[in-house]
Amino acid sequence: MATTALFFIFAGIAIGCALSLVYNRNPLYSAVSLIGVFVALSCIYITLAAPFIAAVQILIYAGAIMVLVIFVIMLLNLDDDKPYRRLGYLYALGGFLGIVLLAQTFFVFWAVTKTTKPAVAGAFKAEETVGRTMSIGTNMYTEYLLPVEIVGVLLLMAIIGGVILVRRLSQPELELVVDNELARRNEAEEADDYRIEL
């Protein structure tokens, strides 16, 4: 009973925050909404008896990834997203595709729950240890050792890639970039002038 109530409260928060993420044009508002989704999902994981995943969700998503995102938003000082008036009908099309996708997702899940019965209704009561740190740790370093190693290598690659992507440009490189940008802007302005003349 309490679990159900908690689930619906946090599900409501998650959906509300997700909608606000899409609706807000200011990237920082979107980011704060997304943090709300993460926190609500973490609470839902606790109702699913997965405390370890809940803690890791907060630690990795809210504590690391979103801090990075907010840091980048603050650093770049981004403006609001400008609405794209010229292609207004595309929004309607996008909304329609969204509804189709939702229907499709629901159909797939409906089929899944229909065909395969959960092992036993009370199975998870007997398996109280499933979400515990110990069971996750043992499984991770025995049965799933190879994926863990692969993920480790992937993270290393990501670190190296990140460092190379954002390294400080040398002076000649920087000048080249600025020159190119200026040239591009001049061209754009000339094109605009040309268009106005027409």
């Binding site: 699913l48 008896a49 997965a50 959960p118 092992a119 199975a123 998870f124 007997a126 398996e127 499933v130 979400g131 069971s135 996750i136 499984n139 799933y144």
Partner: peptide, 8 residues
């Protein structure tokens, strides 16, 4: 994972 009692 919860409803099949499997940690995978």
């Amino acid at each position: 994972s919860r409803y099949y009692g499997d940690v995978t």
